[in-house]
Simulated assay, not measured.
Amino acid sequence: MTRKILVLNGPNLNLLGTREPDIYGYDTLGDIEARLRERGAALGLEIDFRQSNHEGELVTWIQEGRGTVVGGMINPAGYTTTSVALLDAILACGYPVLEVHLSNIHQREAFRQKSLISTAAKGVICGLGPAGYMLALDALDGLTAK
Rank of each mutant, 00 (worst) to 15 (best):
M1I: 03
T2D: 00
T2F: 01
K4L: 05
K4E: 08
I5R: 10
V7S: 07
L8S: 09
L15C: 04
L16P: 08
G17P: 04
E20L: 07
E20S: 05
P21A: 06
P21D: 00
Y24C: 03
G25R: 02
T28H: 03
G30T: 09
G30R: 06
I32G: 14
E33D: 07
A34F: 02
R35N: 15
R35M: 07
R37G: 13
G40C: 13
G44A: 14
E46A: 13
E46L: 06
I47V: 10
I47H: 15
D48Y: 07
F49Q: 09
F49T: 07
F49K: 09
R50W: 15
R50E: 12
Q51F: 08
N53R: 11
N53Y: 13
H54F: 11
E55P: 02
L58I: 10
T60W: 14
T60M: 15
T60F: 14
I62R: 00
I62C: 10
Q63M: 05
E64Y: 01
E64P: 00
R66N: 04
G67A: 03
T68M: 01
T68H: 10
V69T: 03
V69K: 01
V70D: 09
G78I: 02
T81I: 01
S83F: 03
V84M: 11
D88Q: 10
D88H: 06
D88C: 04
A89S: 09
C93G: 04
C93M: 12
C93K: 08
G94M: 09
Y95P: 01
Y95W: 10
V97H: 09
L98C: 08
E99C: 07
H101L: 02
L102S: 04
L102M: 09
L102Y: 02
S103K: 03
S103R: 05
N104C: 02
H106P: 02
H106R: 09
Q107D: 06
R108A: 00
R108L: 00
E109I: 10
Q113G: 10
S115H: 10
L116T: 15
I117D: 03
S118E: 04
S118I: 08
T119M: 15
T119R: 13
T119S: 13
A120I: 15
A120K: 10
A120M: 13
A121N: 00
K122I: 13
K122H: 13
G123S: 12
V124E: 02
C126T: 12
G127P: 02
G127S: 14
L128Y: 02
G129T: 05
P130L: 00
Y133G: 05
M134H: 06
L135I: 12
L135M: 14
A136H: 05
A136M: 05
L137T: 06
D138Y: 00
A139C: 01
A139M: 05
L140P: 11
L140H: 11
G142D: 03
K146G: 14
